[in-house]
Amino acid sequence: MRARLRAWGVLLFVLALCWGFAQGGGPWLQKRIPMVDRIFTVIEEQDINANAYFYTEIEESYQAERYIQGSLDLGVPGEAGLTLPLAVGILACVGLLWLGYRYLPMD
């Protein structure tokens, strides 16, 4: 019974610590470190999902794709799209992985 109560106590204590960080510790730290404050202000103002793990989870990826594609199409059409150096880059990637497959240490 005592061990059970202790376990619940630890659980609630850790949750309280998390709450404390969310409501007090985190914002306090943000105000004390100017760089952190500036980055977080940008995140808030631009509504960036800093938690995202994959490119489809943020709108900025799609904006970036259109921007970069448009820039290259307009400015250097010869170097946009499927070019020879691009194909070389892809082949280099495959070649590197093949080398790894052949020669990575097994011990």
Binding site: R38, I48, N49, F54, Y55, A64, E65, I68
Partner: peptide, 21 residues
């Protein structure tokens, strides 16, 4: 990706677009 976007946006729109791409 989210952290890349946040760090890029801090430097400016162009940095955000290059980093995200």
């Amino acid at each position: 990706t989210g952290a890349v976007a946040a760090a890029g946006a801090f430097l400016g729109e162009k940095a955000l677009y290059v980093a995200a791409t």
